[in-house]
Design a protein around this nucleic acid. Sequence first.
DNA 1: CACCAGGAATGTA
DNA 2: TACATTCATGGT
Length: 215
Amino acid sequence: MNSLEKLYKELKKKYGLAKGQWRLWCKRLKTGKEREEVVIGAILTQRTNWRNVEMALKNLKREKINSLRDIYKLGPEKLAPLIKSSGFYRAKANYLFHLAKFIIENYGSLREMKKEDLPKLRGELLKLKGIGKETADSILLYAIEKPVFVIDEYTRRFVKKHKMAKKFPYEYLQNLFQKSLPRDIKIYQDLHAMIVLEEKGAGWDSKNPSEQKII
DNA sequence: CACCAGGAATGTA
DNA sequence: TACATTCATGGT
């Protein structure tokens, strides 16, 4: 067992089962609706805290905008004011609209998207404006359920803290995680989620645990 | 008013 | 390829 697998087991002991509320969040991904919300959240949360994203999501729900298809039909101009609280809202409205448009026009749904292979999907997502590696991989791992490890600031901190590497480019770290772990979507999701909890320190928002940001 | 929030795109060597 | 700089906004 390598050192990363050991860290994984330790985190699991700490956050698994007893304190495993975050598992509820993962289970909710079973529904297509929740997976679409992951896509929406992935864009809205860029350079913004999750609380502001929640307000935006609430606005969308109030207007009955619950799916990527709804966003596609709505258009960026009408979308922008609804997501104002998430910051950078004009840019994000465009990013999100074009992402929804891409998914709906080319695949129809996330479920259909999953049938395509990972490198092709990743390449397609990265071509879209406003979608970089972290956002693309978040969508791939949590919404489409492809085995790709997400590297974010929390992951970088984690790597530094445990002296797992001396350089920190995205692909290098991604490869480090993927070659040290079984190629398993669930493990990638679990570990990434626990790293976020661990590095974030604060743990769960007691008022609203199910909405805790993980991706 | 300063600073924060889990990025992305572009420039540069 | 890898690191530095620029851009983009509401909330507190």
